[in-house]
Design a protein around this nucleic acid. Structure first.
Length: 154
DNA sequence: GCCAACGTTGGC
DNA sequence: GCCAACGTTGGC
């Protein structure tokens, strides 16, 4: 029996890959995460987990859509590709350093739930990695209660 | 193992 | 484009 469904937030720069891009692609391999904490979160993911799709470094940073984890974690192939921006010479196929998952499109939100708005709900949200001071983590856990509350703002 | 230097993230 | 905050690297 598999553990119950969990929830995550994954950041992306919409100029590079937006919720609309995911809608077109249907499923996207989430390559290029090169942060250990973010990787560790991805290693805990299971097919069917919920993902808040977050747009960063853009006009209105915030949650733009819902996605789902579409694969078990597996080694990120770009770490072995010398030509890739994500190539890691310290990684080997025998002992891959970076794991990733595939992410599939669920739906686009009717409106972006902005970071600015999220910050006004710190009481309801409780401790939240997204709004913790100085946090730059690109893959972070969301509790079931936070998931429910954030989507109730839509 | 310390820590300065450097690179990156991401909001503003 | 700026810069605070953070992670990583590498000399010692």
């Amino acid at each position: 029996m598999s553990p119950r469904k969990r929830y995550w937030l994954m950041k992306t720069e919409p100029d590079t890959f937006s919720i609309d891009d995911l809608a077109k692609a249907k499923t996207e391999p989430w390559t290029g995460v090169r942060n250990y904490q973010a990787r560790n979160h991805m290693k805990e993911m299971q097919v069917g987990d919920g993902v808040l799709f977050y747009h960063s470094s853009c006009e209105v940073p915030g949650i733009a859509g819902i996605a789902a984890v579409a694969s078990a974690p597996y080694p990120d192939p770009t770490q072995f590709e010398k030509k890739s921006d994500y190539y890691d010479p310290k990684s080997s196929r025998e002992q891959p350093r970076w794991e990733m998952v595939d992410v599939s499109f669920e739906r686009k939100l009717k409106r972006v739930i902005s970071l600015e708005e999220i910050k006004t709900h710190t009481d309801e949200l409780g401790p939240f990695a997204l709004t913790q001071r100085g946090s730059r983590l690109s893959v972070l856990p969301v509790s079931a209660a936070q998931w429910k509350f954030l989507l109730s703002l839509e």
